[in-house]
């Protein structure tokens, strides 16, 4: 079991809500999507890969087979699912301080939601309702989402550059090359092992091995 893979952390939080308030929450989600400025803060937090909120009505829980008995549930549930870079605390704290009112808006219909500030009751609420990740895989263990975005920028710009400039005279080529570097100046970060967010013995050992591998 680990919530961590490479530089990424997976968080699942399932919180109960009164079934008759579901429509209100849907309305809030709908309004947020209509006015994307509301999500500016979330989008600016570059440690976040994505964050998704899904409401599961109490009679819509999936069954593997029609023969599986239906559950009688008291509450409907909201599932929050996010992948991010950095530690649990960094993520939750960033959320709390950057967009406290947005969080409160999304979660306020949920049972015993304490509000995002002060911090400790919010920490406790998330921790209490978090479901640990059993299996988690990352294709790029040394990449944060910012690194993936940068790599995509670099790849596209290089292909375009090659098509447009490869046959130019040396002077023009240099000029184009400098322009290319300028355009990509925020995409040249190194990719190395993650700073450890877990002091689990295995995590420390693995990071040490990766650092040594990089030295060869």
């Amino acid at each position: 079991m680990s919530n961590i893979a490479g530089k990424a952390y997976a968080m699942n939080v399932i919180t109960p809500m009164r079934w008759y308030k579901v429509w209100l929450n849907r309305l809030i989600f709908w309004a947020a999507l209509k006015a994307p400025n509301v999500l500016n803060g979330l989008l600016t937090l570059s440690l976040i890969h994505y964050a998704r909120w899904v409401i599961i009505p109490r009679d819509k829980f999936p069954r593997l087979d029609p023969s599986q008995p239906k559950e009688e549930l008291e509450y409907s549930y909201m599932m929050f699912f996010s992948n991010f870079n950095g530690s649990w605390a960094q993520y939750v704290d960033s959320f709390t301080f950057a967009i406290p009112s947005g969080l409160d808006l999304f979660w306020k219909m949920n049972v015993r939601y304490p509000k995002s500030v002060p911090l400790t009751p919010f920490h406790d609420y998330i921790q209490h309702n978090q479901i640990d990740t059993s299996h988690y895989y990352t294709a790029y263990p040394m990449a944060a989402s910012n690194d993936v975005k940068s790599a995509k920028n670099v790849k596209k710009a290089l292909i375009d550059f090659n098509a447009a400039s490869s046959n130019k005279s040396p002077d023009e080529f240099l000029e184009d090359y400098n322009k290319l570097l300028n355009q990509l100046q925020h995409d040249f970060g190194e990719m190395r092992p993650t700073p450890i967010v877990s002091l689990a013995a295995q995590a420390v050992k693995e990071r040490y091995m990766e650092t040594q591998a990089g030295n060869r």
């Binding site: 440690l47 950095g86 944060a144 910012n146 940068s150 925020h186 970060g189 190395r192």
Partner: peptide, 15 residues
């Protein structure tokens, strides 16, 4: 750890 020896918050990878 995060700002001196790492730079994801600055979008500069591990620089």
């Amino acid at each position: 750890q995060q700002w001196i020896n790492y730079a994801n918050d600055f979008k500069q990878g591990n620089d």
